[in-house]
Design a binder for these strands. Structure first.
Length: 267
DNA sequence: AATCCTATCAACCGCACTTCG
DNA sequence: ACGAAGTGCGGTTGATAGGAT
């Protein structure tokens, strides 16, 4: 009995000794040094053998999210934002799965991006981040706009070079669907589509059909002829070339972010 | 200059699943 | 087959840097 109590006391002491909070430079060095000699995995024993007063979970997290050589830190690029939005629309909050498609990014980083940037916009629009209308805004407004911004940056890059190149965007997009938006007065706001056949993004103001979801709700339903998004994971790897052109530039030119889009819709 | 507010992100927590003895 | 230990994942928290007042 006494032996059992002593054992429990030892465990308590070990728990009490465990370090928490931010990792020190020395701890990072010890962990990196140990993994470089012995490899990763078996985190609990690794922690003990390396002489770290951290839980195995803590060591694993520190390594995977920060110390791993292939981890990329810094701002999420437009292309990465696009990919995150697209992948999230298919898989939801499966961060580790999404992270597999963003080289050097961790699930934690993507999760943080989603919560701080995307959920913030949902809050501003006063709608649930998982709601149909916010998903529609992401799919049919935010994502196309991101595509345009990426394209614009590539066009300006191309213009600055001596070669004349056709604007070509490489994204994971397999297919966007035709959409139309209308305002309260049944006037068309915009029409956008990306089709695999003509590989183009088109905006026009013809043949629009759209409905306000309810008189008490100040958002608009996006009509869609097809829900096709990513049909399978393989399609993500078949990077399509998507050429962009627009014939309704005045609609888009100043819609740089979701707040702009929303204020445009409200007016 | 001081204080408050907000955004960001590293780290922790709890749960579910897998592996091991 | 079973229980304990280990691992992985998504959700959440808290420290802090930087901007606004």
């Amino acid at each position: 009995m006494d032996k059992l109590i002593n054992q429990e006391n030892n465990i308590d002491e070990e728990i009490m000794e465990l370090r928490r909070g931010p990792w020190s430079v020395e701890e990072d060095f010890v962990l990196m040094n140990y993994i470089s000699h012995h490899g990763e995995g078996r985190w609990n024993s690794l922690s003990r053998c390396a002489g770290l007063k951290r839980t195995g979970k803590s060591c694993r997290l520190r390594w995977l999210n920060y110390l791993r050589p292939d981890v990329r830190h810094g701002n999420i690029t437009l292309e990465e934002q696009l990919l995150i939005l697209q992948l999230h629309s298919r898989w939801g909050n499966r961060w580790s799965k999404i992270a597999q498609y963003l080289q050097g990014r961790t699930d934690n980083e993507i999760k943080n991006y989603w919560r701080t940037r995307v959920q913030k916009h949902a809050k501003q629009l006063k709608c649930d981040v998982n709601s149909k209308q916010f998903q529609d805004i992401l799919r049919y407004l935010w994502i196309p706009r991101l595509v345009e911004r990426i394209q614009a940056s590539k066009i300006s890059f191309n213009n600055s070079s001596s070669e004349t190149q056709q604007p070509v965007l490489r994204t994971g997009i397999t297919e966007l669907v035709p959409i139309q938006l209308m305002n309260n007065n049944n006037n068309n706001i915009l029409r956008t589509s990306v089709t695999p056949e003509n590989s183009s993004v088109v905006t026009s103001s013809e043949n629009s059909i759209g409905t306000q979801v309810s008189p008490n709700q100040d958002y608009y339903q996006v009509n869609q002829s097809d829900q096709l998004w990513f049909e399978d994971c393989q399609s993500m790897d078949q990077q399509n070339n998507i050429e962009l052109w627009m014939d309704n530039e005045d609609v888009f030119n100043n819609l740089c972010n979701i707040e702009d889009i929303w204020s445009y819709l409200e007016n």
